[in-house]
Design a protein around this nucleic acid. Sequence first.
DNA 1: AGATTAATGCAACTAGAGTAGCGATAGTGA
DNA 2: TCACTATCGCTACTCTAGTTGCATTAATCT
Lengths: 214, 214
Amino acid sequence: MVDLAVRRPGGRTARIRVAVLEATVSALIEHGYDGLTMERIADRAGVNKTTLYRRWGSRTGLVVDAVESYAAAQADIPDTGDIDEDLRRWARSIHTMLTGKVSGALVRAVFSAGDTAELRHLRQRFWLSRAVLVRPLVERAIIRGQLPPGTNIDEVIRHVGAPLYYRLLVLAEPLSVESADLAAAVTAAAAKAGVFIDKSAHPAHPATVARPKG
Amino acid sequence: MVDLAVRRPGGRTARIRVAVLEATVSALIEHGYDGLTMERIADRAGVNKTTLYRRWGSRTGLVVDAVESYAAAQADIPDTGDIDEDLRRWARSIHTMLTGKVSGALVRAVFSAGDTAELRHLRQRFWLSRAVLVRPLVERAIIRGQLPPGTNIDEVIRHVGAPLYYRLLVLAEPLSVESADLAAAVTAAAAKAGVFIDKSAHPAHPATVARPKG
DNA sequence: AGATTAATGCAACTAGAGTAGCGATAGTGA
DNA sequence: TCACTATCGCTACTCTAGTTGCATTAATCT
């Protein structure tokens, strides 16, 4: 949808892109996704409506581009040497993202924008990019012996984020910091108890409690 | 939005309601929420478009009514005497709901329909109605001594469902039965370890491991 | 049965999303 | 500097969601 092969990237094209994406984000924050009209964005960006359709194709395409360009500011991955603390900090960084003024509005928009193939891909790409960053966090814990070998890393990652997204998007409840800490603690406890061990991958493993530290 | 105080409920009014809601559901299954147009529903129900807007106000109102009337067929709450098994069965019933042809389409529609106040209320009502049913399941486990006293029941319930909704709505991944079992096992393990104990509510409690059975 | 009036059907209307054609503007390379 | 052309602005258009006013149908009550 978005022009990836820009023939004239310098000057006006880039300037308009910035203006449009900024207008999209600010309009999103003010009026929410349901009040996000193409004309409003065009006016605010000082650009004609036609340009929006030509370059981004649709409202969905605009939101997708805005999110992906904003995701450049990635969360930093903690490494404290303690899996409980690492997971807790990472859960809090998710919390920060979901409750942030800009990032929160963008996340809500992405999940209010419908159920098209393009949006599904965006969501999967987004998760994948973050999972890649977080994976080492869990891997280090396994190497340190804090988590049992055979632990399904991706499932651990999923279970930390799930309760937060669930609360925000499904239950539409306010997100507290405590809920982030809880999600991390629940996942950590289950992981230590060996619940995340992939049965099919490691059939010889006892799959019971493995606690190196009290 | 929906006429709750119907002045003439008999005959035509009820007949049209049934026809419209059926048409809504079938159109939803065939074309998804994004392809759900009022005219299509009106045609399929043999009703004029104006009637839809007058009685349900909007597409959102229509979906809300369809979901709430469909939710009459509630999931049955397990009671096997074992918390692990109970949570597992309940997680599977969520899984069934989310992957079911009709119920799955309705759930997806509710979460693709936007972010209006009406939809937020629907989601909260929906969760609340189900939480009320499931709560006794966790309460019994506490009484039996399988879970420590002070366990935050609502949080336990949330954490069972969260990974399933997260997978379906956020990650847009296929939902396997194993993922349901995993969500139940993770929550059960954490609950037994006392992670769900409300610190503020029970300050005197040790808040550590409390395992009556192996 | 007959009167009353909810509730629906119908047709014409408004508003905004999205498109098409063409002239204007401004990067780009010589 | 100057030609070239990608990109944008402008205007007018189509299409569909949603609204309005009035005629019609049928549920309810006596």
